[in-house]
Design a binder for these strands. Structure first.
Lengths: 200, 200
DNA sequence: TCTTGATTAGTCAATCTTGACTAGTCAGGA
DNA sequence: TCCTGACTAGTCAAGATTGACTAATCAAGA
């Protein structure tokens, strides 16, 4: 839904054709939003049907006609409505990217540590990339700063997990029978067998 | 894609029917993943076609038949593949939830502040809710902790933005002609008009 | 001049996701 | 007994999203 706001917001500045909108988003904002070309066209179409933008075909030379989109009055109103809604509300992203953590017990702790270390490297790489990227002007930089802030927080998180697991390993190893490490980290009580609803 | 891993991982513990899988995810993991019922069934179906899970219809009393899903050997292999992939890689969430920030200039700074304050309240509420929720066992709690860590980071972020905007307002107001505040925060140079590709 | 590869501009079929709906069961009160 | 509302279990059509494809233009080198 914030993708619509984004398109409306960009069109507010001046009319553009679909490819241009998508290109700008890719080039400048790819750090924090992703909007594939086909989705951009889909949304522009939808918003055209809703009367928020209007299209005009422009023909240049022998090129196939390009569609230029411009904001209508209704679109401007919708932009303001969505903007207020966007700034005043909060939709937490789901951090489910690391669901695997719930199933750590399926692997040797040593392997888990190796994998998490690899994950940490990925986070660092991305963080470095965004931190050293050329600065943008004004409010756009704010969005990138947000992503950087988020990545820093993710880096902290991976580190916490790595520490936790490291200690768990140390503990487990010292208590384990030789050559077999206890791999159960989810106690049985977490996942109960379905209460048998057998009847009759 | 991590939704598949989640389903496979849960089925690894013991067979379940679709409703049970979805129910468990809703009840226990709704903080960090969201998987609607229909999506769960869709994925189970897909994974059945892929041979990762098998289905058996069980009939109890006069109830309509329920489908019970169990992990196959191929499914177990796939689970391990996906688990390794999941732990070792990192897909940054896009923080685009606040794209509106890029268009702050369309509103009075005072209103922006009010809206951001409201946003901060939303973040706090959610954070409080998750922090005080009953603890879960083992690795599952880890996922919730991640979400809490993330929400704390978001709270910091909103605060940063509020501070920034507050100062910008102070600065603007002191420089402004009386009764009109400068609202342009995105300099013109950020969004250029398309270089006219006029030819001929 | 011809070919190759990049850029512009979009379309389309396949896949994924979801809100809304169906339908049986069961417990408890009128 | 009948009705109501909650729970169980799932289906379905509509909508959103994407990867892969088409097709024209243009620049630059062989």
């Amino acid at each position: 839904m914030e993708r619509e706001l984004l398109l409306l917001g960009l069109l507010r500045q001046h009319e553009m054709h679909g490819y241009e909108l998508h290109g700008f988003i890719e080039r400048v904002m790819s750090t924090c939003v992703d909007l594939k070309k086909a989705t951009a066209y889909f949304l522009l179409d939808k918003m055209t049907r809703a009367g928020w933008v209007s299209v005009s075909e422009t023909r240049e030379g022998k090129r196939p006609a390009r569609k230029t989109y411009q904001l209508t009055a209704a679109g401007a109103a919708e932009f303001h409505r969505q903007l207020r809604d966007n700034l005043g509300s909060f939709n937490a992203a789901k951090t489910g990217d690391d669901v695997g953590l719930a199933f750590m017990d399926a692997l040797e702790p040593a392997e888990v540590l190796a994998l998490l270390t690899q994950r940490r490297a990925r986070v660092s790489e991305q963080l470095a990339e965004y931190q050293h990227a050329p600065k943008h002007a004004g409010s756009l930089q704010l969005l990138i700063d947000h992503q950087v802030h988020y990545l820093k927080s993710e880096l902290e998180w991976v580190n916490t997990v790595i520490h936790t697991v490291t200690h768990a390993v140390a503990h487990t190893v010292s208590n384990a029978r030789p050559s077999t490490s206890s791999k159960k980290t989810i106690p049985k009580t977490t996942l109960r067998k379905p209460k048998s609803t057998q009847r009759k």
